[in-house]
Design a protein around this nucleic acid. Structure first.
Length: 421
DNA sequence: TCTGGGGTCCTAGGACCC
DNA sequence: TCTGGGGTCCTAGGACCC
C-alpha cells in the first residue's frame, strides 16, 4: 500500500495570495477568529521568527512598521479553495481521505512507484496553476511516514514538491534527520519528556524496544512507533458523522450582563443546531460553558460548565437554544467578566432513526419545531442570519468578534472580486 | 489593554454492583 | 467489626491533531 499525503503550503496565507498577488514574497500572517493570534505564516514571516499562536499584540509593531502584512481569517475563502483542491485530488485518486481543510491522504492502489511519482508531480503543477496554491506531496508506505516525506518535500526545493520514501535506506535516513517532536502523534508535551530520556530523533525512537514505548507513551505511542517502522496501522477513517459539535468564541470585550451573555449563547446554540441538522443528526446532551479571561492573573477566575441530557435527542433550534439557556441560568454568576462562551452537543445519533419515548407527550410539538428549523435552514445562508429566535442577536452572529484585516471572499462573492480589479 | 476554535481518542479514578 | 477483588459504567482531564 502506498499513501500520498498532499499538504498545502502555508494554506491560509497561500489562499490570500491567490487573489492578492501583491502579497507574494512578503511576510504575511493570518490571525485567528477575533484577531487573537497567528494561525498561518508565510515562509518570510517564519524567517522573522514569528511562532505559531503568537498573540497579535506581540507582533503589532512589525505590522505597523510595514514589515509584516496581517489578514483576519476568511473561512469562506479557505473553505471554497479547499473544496476545489480536494476535487482535483479525487479526480486522480478516488480513494481519498480528507484529513483537514488543507491536507488529504490519497490511497494509491494498483500503481507502481513511478506512476505515483508522475501523478504527484503533475498534481503539484496543476494545483498551483489552477487554484494558485502551492502543495507538497509525501509518498510512503504508512501515513506517519508520508507525513515525514511531505515535510522533506516542503523543506527542500530540490524535491520540486514531491518526496518519495520507497526503500528502507531512505526511511532510516529521513528518521535520523527528523526531530522526535516533528513526528505526527508526538506533541509538545511528550517531546521534551522523550528528550530527557535520550530520545531526540525519530530514529532514536524506533530503536527503543516496544515495551519501553508502551510503558512511557501507552498504546498511542506504540502505534506511532510501528508506523515509523513501515507497519501500516492507522486505518482509513470513514467520513463518518461527527461525534460532537461545538461552537465557541472569545468576545472582543468581556461581558458581565446575563442577558447579553444569553443572546451570545443563543447564537452559539443555534449555530450548533444548524450544523447538527446539516449532518442529519440529533443530540442527546447539550453542554454550555462560560469563562473569564484565563490570561489575567489579577482577577478571580470562574469557568463553569454543565450539561443537560434530553430524554429524546433533539435537533431543532428551539430545543437546543432553550436547553442551552437553562444551563446558562444554572451556571451564571453575576459579578464576573466573561471573555468566552460555548455550546457543545454530544451523544450524537442519527436523526432519522430517533425512537420517540413512550412518554413523549411533546411529540407533536417537537415535529412542528423541527419543521420551523427546516425553514430557517433554507432562509439562513451562512453568515447572514435573517431568521432567528427572539433571544438571538439580530444580524450576523459574528458581531462582537473582531476581524479588522479581512480581505474579500473573492471566490464565493463576485462583488469582492470586482473590487480588486 | 490585547492571547483561537473545533475536533478525536485514551486513561485514571470514582461510583456502584456482586 | 473485621474485610477483597473484579467488573462495568461514567466523567473529567490530558494529549494529540489541524
Amino acid at each position: 500500500m502506498m499513501y500520498a499525503l498532499v499538504d498545502c503550503n502555508n494554506f491560509f496565507v497561500s489562499c490570500e495570495r491567490a487573489f492578492q498577488p501583491q502579497l507574494e514574497g512578503k511576510a504575511v500572517v493570518v490571525l485567528s477568529n477575533n484577531d487573537g493570534c497567528v494561525v498561518a505564516r508565510s515562509n518570510e514571516s517564519k524567517a522573522l521568527g514569528i511562532e505559531m499562536c503568537t498573540p497579535y499584540f506581540k507582533i503589532r509593531s512589525l505590522a505597523d512598521s510595514g514589515r509584516l502584512v496581517v489578514r483576519s481569517s476568511n473561512y469562506a475563502l479557505y473553505g471554497d479553495l479547499s473544496v476545489r483542491i480536494m476535487s482535483i485530488l479525487r479526480s486522480v485518486s478516488p480513494k481519498l481521505e480528507v484529513y483537514s481543510i488543507d491536507e488529504a491522504f490519497m490511497i494509491m492502489e494498483g500503481m507502481d512507484v513511478a506512476q505515483v511519482k508522475a501523478i504527484s508531480s503533475d498534481l503539484v503543477k496543476r494545483i498551483r496553476q489552477w487554484i494558485g496554491v502551492p502543495v507538497s506531496i509525501g509518498v510512503a508506505s504508512t501515513k506517519t511516514l508520508s507525513k515525514i516525506a511531505s515535510h522533506f518535500a516542503k523543506k527542500y526545493p530540490g524535491y520540486r514538491g514531491v518526496c518519495v520514501m520507497d526503500n528502507d535506506e531512505k526511511r532510516m535516513k529521513a528518521l535520523s534527520l527528523t526531530e522526535i517532536g516533528d513526528v505526527w502523534g508526538i506533541g509538545w508535551r511528550t517531546a521534551p519528556k522523550l528528550g530527557a530520556m535520550g530520545v531526540r530523533s525519530a530514529s532514536d525512537f524506533v530503536q527503543r524496544p516496544q515495551e519501553w514505548v508502551k510503558k512511557h507513551l501507552g498504546i498511542m505511542g506504540v502505534r506511532t512507533w510501528m508506523e515509523l517502522q513501515g507497519k501500516d496501522c492507522i486505518e482509513d477513517q470513514e467520513p463518518e458523522k461527527r461525534k460532537s459539535i461545538c461552537t465557541s468564541r472569545s468576545f472582543a470585550n468581556s461581558i458581565s450582563d446575563k442577558n447579553e451573555l444569553a443572546s451570545r449563547v443563543s447564537d452559539f446554540a443555534a449555530l450548533c443546531a444548524h450544523k447538527l441538522r446539516s449532518e442529519n443528526s440529533a443530540a442527546h446532551t447539550v453542554w454550555v460553558f462560560i469563562q473569564t479571561n484565563r490570561f489575567r492573573k489579577d482577577t478571580v477566575q470562574y469557568d463553569p460548565m454543565s450539561s443537560i441530557s434530553l430524554d429524546v435527542p433533539a435537533s431543532s433550534t428551539q430545543e437546543i437554544v432553550g436547553t442551552s439557556l437553562k444551563i446558562l441560568e444554572a451556571i451564571y454568576e453575576p459579578g464576573y467578566e466573561y471573555k468566552r462562551a460555548g455550546v457543545i452537543l454530544t451523544d450524537i445519533v442519527d436523526g432519522s432513526s430517533i425512537q420517540p419515548s413512550l412518554f413523549d407527550f411533546d411529540y407533536g410539538k417537537r415535529s412542528k419545531e423541527d419543521k420551523v428549523s427546516e425553514v430557517m435552514d433554507k432562509v439562513n445562508v451562512p453568515g447572514r442570519n435573517l431568521l432567528g429566535l427572539a433571544t438571538q442577536r439580530p444580524g450576523n452572529y459574528s458581531d462582537g468578534i473582531r476581524c479588522s484585516y479581512k480581505s474579500g471572499s473573492f471566490s464565493t462573492d463576485w462583488k469582492d472580486l470586482i473590487e480588486v480589479h
